[in-house]
């Protein structure tokens, strides 16, 4: 990084991208931020929307709902994807086929998955009918139009992405590290926890952040497979109806800004936690 100076050519090349970002991303964000601090068409800056947000028990319940859906889904994705990625690190039989089936949910789109789930997990879906016929259940309740419907659908959508990211990371770990660890007397599980897992950590964090942010902004699944008006009323839905049913764009902006803030806080907590764990794991045996 010797030459930090900007030449005219460099500036000219970067300009279109910067303009694009300003027009489609930065300006709308600042506009929304500004709206969230105003009421109606008045221009006066006020915290009223935020005070209302924190005093509104429905909104507080909405925040809670969103977290209760997105955090477990993200954790479940990571907890399942880590061992599978580890298992697949040196390639598996019929890998292309397996990968193909794993990737299908990514390509189908939320709506198709939701419709499939309605016919499968619904009160009159195959699953409930089979369970009833086999005598496992006496009353068909269905796994959709409630919390579980949303969780299952989000998991189906987020798992392939989490797994893809983690496979990339496990394959980046040189196989000789694992062999070295075994030869130094570490058991398979010690090798995993002391060598593989810490080296997968950056991938786990990225997968966590991407999956969490996408799960946190859940909208379609919450409506199609949940009870958007009560148990699965999530923040994105709340922002939507505030804007398009109550026409309160200012408060809707506040909800959106709060979504951003909550996501940042959670990601911040995860990074802080990692720093603590990482240090602990690498200082074993130090005097």
């Amino acid at each position: 990084m010797k030459n930090r100076g900007w030449s005219l050519e460099t500036a000219a090349m970067v300009l279109p991208a910067v303009l694009f970002l300003i027009v489609v991303f930065i300006y709308p964000f600042i506009y929304a931020l500004k709206m969230s601090f105003t009421i109606g068409d008045e221009g006066t800056v006020t915290f009223a929307n935020y005070i209302r947000f924190f005093q509104d028990s429905v909104e507080m319940k909405t925040v809670w709902n969103t977290l209760v859906i997105s955090v477990p889904v993200t954790i479940l994705t990571i907890v399942l994807a880590v061992p599978i990625a580890y298992y697949m690190r040196n390639g598996i039989r019929h890998e292309k086929l397996v990968t193909f089936f794993l990737m299908i949910p990514m390509t189908l789109g939320v709506v198709l998955i939701a419709e499939g789930m309605i016919t499968y997990f619904g009160r009159n879906g195959w699953l409930m009918l089979i369970l009833e016929r086999l005598g496992f259940i006496h009353e068909r309740t269905g796994l959709i139009h409630n919390y579980w419907g949303v969780v299952i659908s989000l998991f189906i959508q987020s798992f392939p992405m989490g797994l893809t990211i983690l496979i990339g990371y496990t394959r980046g770990i040189h196989p000789s590290l694992e062999r070295a660890s075994r030869m130094l007397g570490a058991t398979k599980s010690q090798t995993f926890w002391k060598v593989i897992f810490p080296l997968m950590m950056p991938g786990i964090l990225i997968a966590f952040c991407l999956n969490f942010t996408s799960a946190f902004s859940v909208f379609t699944s919450a409506i199609m497979l949940g009870q958007a008006t009560s148990t699965t009323r999530v923040m994105a839905y709340s922002a939507y109806i505030t804007a398009y049913e109550y026409f309160d764009y200012n408060f809707s902006s506040t909800i959106c800004i709060m979504m951003v803030i909550i996501q940042f806080i959670l990601i911040g907590i995860v990074f802080a936690l990692r720093n603590k764990l990482y240090k602990g794991a690498s200082s074993v045996g130090k005097g």
């Binding site: 040189h174 007397g185 058991t187 080296l199 130090k286």
Partner: peptide, 21 residues
């Protein structure tokens, strides 16, 4: 290729076999 553990210091690399034991 030495296969040193990149996330551990020299000390921790060398101490690995003793600490797993």
């Amino acid at each position: 290729n030495y296969a040193l553990f990149p996330h551990m210091t020299v000390f921790d690399n060398i101490a690995f076999s003793l600490s797993v034991a």
